[in-house]
Computed example of a mutant assay.
Amino acid sequence: MTKKPRQKPGRPKDLEKKQAVLDAAKSLFLSQGYDATSMDAIAQAAGVSKLTLYSHFSDKDNLFSQSVRSHCEAQMPSELFRLKPDQDIAEQLGSIAKALVALIYDPEAVALHRLIIAASQKDNRLAHLFFDAGPKRMLGELNSLLRAACDAGYLVIPDTEQAADEFFCLVKGLRHMRILTGCSEVPASLHELTHLESALALFLKAYRA
């Protein structure tokens, strides 16, 4: 009988503590603002020691970056961007579009965008941390998917990096800016976002083989 490999002691507990810190950090950043949130307050809210906190995150900037990345990866995992030969490319891009709007129209995401905009009036360092941990990672993932789709003959795109940027802009639409500026309400349902179908059709009309 083959013995199962033993798990390292404490590993599940460590992951639970790390997630508790990420959850606490996200909550405090949104409610109190980045500058007003201390690492001590995050450790207390997460129910962990400062030693545990710093064993996972070197500083507050690193914690902020990882909390953004964790939230984005939960909503839009890397698997979503892997080319699926058994699925029409239109269907896969449609799934990405729906996941994106679910992410950016989430009330917490809207609040985070507003936090970034407000903080950027004094210092754009936080904006760079946010962009690198969230949008930049998703643009890179989509760029890789578009290149793979071109190699497979599904799409013909001269500049996949530019096309990835165009795709996200089309999917976000003008309503996202209206929501961020308080000119429109967050949609109660994704079914209200009637522009998704036409945005996808426009993208495919330009680049489908």
Rank of each mutant, 00 (worst) to 15 (best):
Q87G: 00
T181K: 12
Y34S: 04
A97K: 05
H195W: 15
L100N: 12
V110A: 11
R11A: 13
F131P: 00
Y154P: 00
A99T: 04
E192V: 01
A152Y: 03
D123E: 09
A164D: 06
Q162S: 14
F130E: 12
K84L: 00
L204A: 06
C72K: 03
F168I: 02
F167R: 01
P158A: 11
F29Q: 07
P5A: 06
S70Y: 08
L174N: 10
T2S: 08
D35A: 14
D61S: 06
R137T: 10
G10I: 13
D159H: 13
L193R: 03
I117E: 07
L145S: 00
L193E: 11
C183H: 15
A24Y: 14
Y34F: 15
H128C: 03
A152G: 01
L200A: 03
L15E: 15
K98R: 12
V186N: 02
C169D: 04
G47R: 05
L115A: 09
Y207K: 02
I96H: 04
Q7W: 08
G94W: 03
L22N: 05
A97W: 04
T37M: 04
S120E: 06
K13V: 14
P85N: 00
P158F: 10
L28F: 13
R11T: 11
T52R: 08
A20M: 13
L63G: 02
K122V: 02
Q32I: 01
S70A: 14
H128I: 13
R114G: 06
A119Q: 06
S70G: 04
